[in-house]
Amino acid sequence: METILFYFFSAFMVLSALMVITVHNPVRAAFFLVLTFFASAVVWLLLEAEFLAVILIIVYVGAVMVLFLFVVMMLDINITELKAGFVKNLPLAIAVALVMFGTIYYVVGGDQFGIEHFATPDRHAADYSNIAELGKLLYTEYVFAFEIAAVILLVGIVAAISLTLRRRPNTRHQKIEDQIAVKSEDRLRVVEVAPHARKGER
């Protein structure tokens, strides 16, 4: 059963990854990327890494890809224009792709990560908590690496905001603080008017 599920979702993942780079419509390509993430999350679940699988879905599927889709939907991408230099650049592209493939194969190929280099890991019992184990490792052994990663992310956030922040003093914009602070007395004046009969009436 597990083997069937593994092969089904692996095939699903490879196929949708292929679709990402072959479909014409960029929005559809983004949706196929979502499917790829989803299938890889299921494969991680089968590897008993349930925490990573769920985090993959929350972070990549739930946040990153939504923002990606935003950008892709808003841009009016002209496919034919993009394809114009396809044949001209093909030899260079193939060369780059081969070099990339060779490097990746050398680093993570069978020589380093082949099945004969690793003993079959033991199955964990049903009460094994992936999160507790990960938390212990992250906050004891790898605490400095973890903190450095957090600081780098913070720097990234600050940099992104400061790059895009434009102060335009000439534009009129709403100050929400002022709007919220407004009281009814500032806007409305109740005038006491003494009632009196008009001339000529009665």
Partner: peptide, 17 residues
Amino acid sequence: INVALLYILAMTSIGVY
């Protein structure tokens, strides 16, 4: 399951799709 809370967050975030 142990990740129940995260699972619910994951499901709601897929729901956006």
